[in-house]
Design a binder for these strands. Structure first.
Lengths: 273, 273
DNA sequence: ACGCATTTGTTCGTATGTATT
DNA sequence: TAATACATACGAACAAATGCG
């Protein structure tokens, strides 16, 4: 990678064309929110800049980002370069392109992307239509396990939530989840009780925490007496345990969730490609 | 989309440039392997042509396809258009780009992509290193369920295989799988016994059946007496059932597999994004 | 060890098509 | 209808990786 492709952009103003006036990594000295990669293709540097604007909340979920042409002139690169950066962010589901309208910050507040992370599907019939029943919501000091998963100091305050998802009368999922207390000030049972819609939409709109990625570990486990009672299965029945860690920008974990799925009439759907 | 962008390519030879000589969907009349989409962006038409060449085995797994420049002149489009078509096929893991070397047909015969479809991971330690133990391999008439899953007429011959995957001494996975008998002529216990390496590599190299995609349904189930004995767990123990349908080009199902995972020291890993 | 040819990767510029407002 | 924004397609040039002589 040549020096000519590593110039300060955005922060520095100069009118040189990309292939005419070499100017070694200026960006490093002026980047306020973490160093930008010093020697990378231009479009990846642009991608990093866009990512930083997203992370800093410069553009809000559901809102349009500046047009490709405007970004191109702002960063003093060609439209095609901006386009390639946006292409990658769109492929990662951080941005959504809409022809004729613009490019928008992805949001959990839309029908199409609403239950993007829920892989549960009924064995027969259409997509899952589940009701929620809140069982518990309390603030507590994190256990070592929860603290480690959320990358918090041990004992740091967390919010613990327990809820059921039901298909009609039938309980299907028992969810336990833990959130960093600091990021979710004011979140309590009443908030959750009144909320209509996906949790991730609540997190996004009320607490400015946007989930963008998650990792799950699946296991088969035997139901404890308590779990069995809540899910209306026999004690010791086989349940699918789904342990999820959700991340926001910069790979910061913002949720630990453990779901117990009753998979007699539903299954967890996955696509390998 | 204008007519000018929908011309016969590959089969028709004419020297017109893309934006100068309109010539409505010629491809339709000469396409031997299914109609090409009549009105689509050029790069998608190119993609369809490449896909057909892959499906017909014109280029073999692991081998390079023609260079971008050569394809561009063959199809009489610009290099950038070929590039975009290849980009999408690479994103779908059908092709692999290697700078300076060329673009290659994806294969299961490489370290990196070898166990791309195996999501099992040990709770502690590095990636899974599993031994295989073949338990059974027989030819039979398909049950209605298997026939339906493989889109075969009921009673059509299939190969049934049962095997164990072990982590050292410990059995971890009990796999049952079914393959269309017609496509896997000559496949028997000895073949499998002697084979070193992933099954999908065997399918690819010996039977010209290349897996490109799979769908899985996961459930928690209780171990039967037989399954428990084979996996060395208590009868009724909770096991993770992974039912997989694998597909080759054109969404044709070519394998049904049902794995039972013992998830006490391993888990099924999934990434949501 | 060096240079050269080939191939993909990056970047620019320009023009036109299509969808939305 | 016109303006705007993304989508497609072209061409050109140079960079980077690879392999060969």
């Amino acid at each position: 990678m040549s020096l000519a492709q590593n110039r300060g952009m955005a922060e520095t103003t100069h009118s040189s064309r990309a292939d005419s006036a070499p100017l070694a990594g200026v960006a490093e000295g002026v980047a306020p929110a973490g160093p930008l990669p010093a020697f990378a293709p231009l479009y990846q540097q642009i991608k990093s800049l866009l990512l930083r604007s997203l992370q800093l909340g410069e553009w809000q979920p559901g809102q349009p980002i500046p047009s490709e042409m405007e970004l191109a002139s702002r960063y003093r690169v060609s439209q095609g370069t901006v386009r390639k950066a946006i292409d990658e962010l769109a492929a990662e589901n951080l941005l959504v392109r809409r022809q004729g309208k613009g490019t928008f910050v992805a949001t959990h507040a839309e029908e199409k992307t609403q239950y993007r992370f829920l892989r549960l599907a009924p064995d027969a019939g259409g997509p899952a239509q589940l009701q929620r029943r809140l069982l518990d919501c309390r603030r507590m000091r994190s256990t070592p396990e929860v603290a480690a998963a959320l990358q918090l100091p041990a004992g740091e305050p967390v919010v613990e939530v327990r809820r059921l998802l039901l298909d009609g009368e039938r309980p299907v999922v028992l969810d336990d989840l833990w959130l960093p207390g600091a990021a979710f000030k004011g979140l309590d049972a009443q908030t959750l009780q009144q909320w209509r819609g996906p949790l991730y939409r609540l997190f996004e709109s009320e607490y400015s925490v946007r989930m963008i990625r998650a990792e799950e570990q699946l296991r088969a486990v035997a139901a404890s007496a308590e779990e069995a009672a809540l899910l209306q299965v026999a004690p010791g029945a086989a349940l699918l345990s789904v342990e999820r860690r959700s991340f926001t920008y910069g790979d910061r974990p913002v949720e630990l969730r453990r779901g117990l799925y009753h998979t007699d009439r539903h299954h967890y759907r996955n696509v390998l490609s």
